[in-house]
Amino acid sequence: MIEVRNISKRFGKVVVLDDVSLTIENGETFVIIGQSGAGKTTILRHIAGFFDPDNGDVLIDGIKMNGAGSGKKMLLREKMGFLFQSGALINWLNVKENVALPLVEHKLGTKGEIDKIVDEKLRLLQLDDAADKMPSDISGGMKKRVGLARAIVRNPEIILYDEPTSGLDPVMSAKIDELILRMQRELGVTSVVVTHDMESAYRIADRIAMLYQGSIIECGTPDQIRGSVNPYVRQFIEGKLTGPIDV
């Protein structure tokens, strides 16, 4: 379970998060929506331990992530996978080497065992044909799938997705969404997804929270969000230019 308790964060004079609280249950797919710069990725980075909040706590299965030493953070991160917006593939390693990287670096098996695990993950994400390609030779959608394969190669309990469908065509977005759902179904992972793609959010979410100016202004199931009467939420999900949100 992930618990975000009353966290606040400011960068310089800008308040990015203001007293944000969330509880994400095991096996749940939780989607955070909001405008660009609303603080969505900042929440994700707090959960991953890249940022420590100015106030409040982040707990992963009851263990505090904020303020933890590098050793403890490493242990907590072993439970997690992170799909970065750009895929964040190591550019001098090919697809297979990128996916194998965490296993090779932590010596989690013989070469044969690692090859077997990597091949299985590549098959799961339909990347078998791209195994020997370099990151510069594959499309954006493929990079995200490789990033996802790498994120799940150690069978994490939690996967954090940062804008998994941004910059992708609708078909590829649907493909990524299907993969996120498959991760939950087949591996039972807890997913936290940051996006402003509403179609994607409705498809994958168990619950959706909307962040506006550093605060959660609405949280509920996709149907509850669809039927929300909050004018900020309505303007955002309908993509209207007029309304209370400053455009």
């Binding site: 991953a48 890249f50 917006q85 932590h106």
Partner: peptide
């Protein structure tokens, strides 16, 4: 370049 394209963060996320 690795830093700004989040590759360093990705390494840390993999506990590397």
């Amino acid at each position: 370049t690795m830093k700004v394209s989040e590759e360093i963060d990705a390494l840390e996320m993999m506990s590397i």
